[in-house]
């Protein structure tokens, strides 16, 4: 019932249903709406990345090419975001870097493969709030340790320590998740 309600309420679902009913203008509007939502979602995960728009386009192409994998009547948004997330992970893999940039002395010891294929937001939720906030500020928002420390009222060393401990914990969680997959 909830699923049906969501399906009726989401413009993406209505547009896709109309498109599959033969309305080609609805398909154009569906893709435009999808682009907007994917851009918003990916920008939250990537930050101000210069390749954001490339990734949005890659996701749109994948959604179009794999549109036969969306079952009629199923909500579009989870399917769409699953594809976009897959493309994001693939993007990070191609660039040979982490979902989190390891650019400080404190966390350089963690291997680059540690967070491949992992949803960083889901991982951060498993950390103590102080460590998660430290990593968000320094690795996602791009603040320096000093700027992050000033924002939260702690010293640079304390901020470095929070980031370092958080990164080590993230690596452990990612390894555990991988073993459980």
């Amino acid at each position: 019932m909830d699923q049906q309600a969501n399906t009726l309420g989401d413009p993406l679902d209505r547009l896709m249903a109309a498109a599959r009913g033969g309305n080609s203008a609805a398909y154009r509007r569906f893709l435009a709406e999808a682009a907007q939502r994917i851009r918003a979602r990916l920008s939250r995960k990537m930050g101000a990345d210069s390749e954001l728009e490339d990734l949005v386009q890659e996701s749109l192409i994948a959604i179009h090419e794999k549109r036969h994998t969306l079952d009629p009547g199923r909500p579009v948004a989870p399917w769409m975001f699953a594809i976009a997330n897959y493309k994001l992970i693939d993007h990070w893999r191609k660039r040979g870097r982490n979902i989190v940039d390891l650019d400080t002395d404190a966390d350089m010891a963690i291997g680059s493969e540690s967070f491949a294929a992992t949803d960083i937001e889901a991982l951060l939720e498993k950390l103590p709030e102080a460590q998660a906030a430290a990593i968000r500020m320094t690795h996602i928002e791009g603040l320096t340790n000093r700027e992050a420390g000033e924002r939260t009222g702690v010293g640079v060393s304390a901020m470095k320590l929070r980031v370092h401990r958080g990164m080590l914990r993230l690596k452990d969680i990612a390894d555990e998740d991988r073993l459980n997959d």
């Binding site: 896709m16 498109a19 599959r20 080609s24 609805a26 398909y27 154009r28 569906f30 893709l31 435009a32 682009a35 386009q57 749109l60 192409i61 179009h64 549109r67």
Partner: peptide, 11 residues
């Protein structure tokens, strides 16, 4: 890109 993809149709 949206124009090109939508021209191919939804099915």
């Amino acid at each position: 890109l949206l124009d090109r993809l939508s021209a191919e149709g939804p099915e």
